[in-house]
């Protein structure tokens, strides 16, 4: 195996990353369809082990969910087709839908860029040979593995309007009337975003760290020899080299933010009032917590899905374009 690796390294050293596979251009026309069939079978043989489990346990229930969103299903008995009634009700008679949608988007817009910047910063900071770096990397990952109850308690104490350390610092630097954080309508969501970012940055840092290893050192050496500054190295070597990870993280973070649930539940439970009520919570409330209206709750999930899909498609095409 080591020979293969050594050989691989040799090839990698010589070629530029990102050159596309053009095998089919060399193939004679007559054999194209045969190759296509062969490739299809080959491709599916790779995908099948995962796909069978995925289709049965995830795809099937999700398709059922789409069907259910057009019915009055209440988790028991028959599901009667009611057409667009659920969606009509959602858009005209659900006082909290617009609020939850706005809150969810607000959370996403703040949380995604913040977390990406923080996790990339941490990854670059900790991607070096430094005494104790192992400890710091582990520490960065701790918020993600810590019990969420503990996270909520400690952060709520930090945010405490009267004797929380955060407000004490703010008063010390001259802000006489600091925010009331989790007990104010304006600041509850930013507070949740801060905790969300703090909690997840270690998680995404790990992916960026792994991504940094895939960038050949030769590229830095070449850039350095050309007299590129550190910032230029970041801009022309690191950032383009991390494109696949950035795409992955952007997509996962956006979807994860749109689906945010347990963090809000333990931090503020949607309050005060409806200041931090989000879509997943609305889904949970309408299905399990309140009246078992699974058909109706499914229609909210479908709306959430469509929004996520639009976001993902945009990111997909931006990524495709940058790839070329």
């Amino acid at each position: 195996m080591s020979e293969v690796v050594a050989e691989a390294a040799l090839v990698e050293g010589k070629t530029q990353a990102g050159v596309r596979y053009r095998a089919k251009d060399k193939t004679p026309r007559s054999r194209r369809s045969k190759l296509r069939l062969r490739n299809t079978l080959l491709g599916w043989s790779f995908i099948a082990p995962n796909f069978i489990g995925f289709a049965l346990l995830t795809l099937l229930p999700i398709l059922a969910l789409f069907y259910v969103s057009f019915t009055d299903w209440n988790a028991f008995g028959q599901a009667n087709w009611i057409g667009l009634d659920n969606f009509r009700r959602l858009f005209t008679k659900e006082p909290n839908f617009e609020i939850a949608l706005k809150n969810t988007l607000y959370y996403t817009v703040l949380h995604v860029p913040l977390t990406m910047a923080a996790s990339l910063g941490l990854a670059i900071l900790l991607n070096r040979k430094l005494k104790g770096v192992t400890f710091f990397r582990t520490a960065a990952f701790f918020p993600y593995i810590c019990s969420i109850v503990a996270v909520a308690v400690v952060w709520n104490a930090l945010f405490h309007p009267e004797y929380g350390p955060i407000n004490e610092v703010l008063r010390f630097i001259g802000i006489d009337d600091p925010p009331r954080w989790t007990v104010s309508k304006e600041w509850a969501m930013p507070a949740v975003v801060i905790v969300g970012t703090w909690r997840e940055m270690g998680y995404y840092m790990l992916l960026y760290l792994a991504g940094l290893q895939t960038i050949p050192r030769e590229q830095y050496e070449a850039a350095s020899l050309d007299g590129a500054s550190s910032w230029q190295q970041f801009l022309y070597v690191t950032w383009p080299g991390l494109r696949p990870q950035t795409f992955f993280i952007a997509v996962m973070l956006t979807i994860g933010s749109m689906k945010v649930f347990d963090l809000v539940l333990v931090m503020t439970d949607g309050g005060p009032g409806t200041a931090t009520l989000v879509l997943s919570q609305l889904i949970w409330n309408k299905s399990f917590k309140e009246t078992g209206q699974f058909g109706y709750a499914s229609s909210i999930a479908v709306v959430l899905f469509v929004i996520c899909l639009v976001f993902t498609l945009v990111q997909f095409f931006v990524n495709k374009r940058n790839q070329k």
Partner: peptide
């Protein structure tokens, strides 16, 4: 209830 009690409304 939560809005009134937290004095945010």
């Amino acid at each position: 209830h939560s809005a009134i009690m937290s004095e945010s409304g």
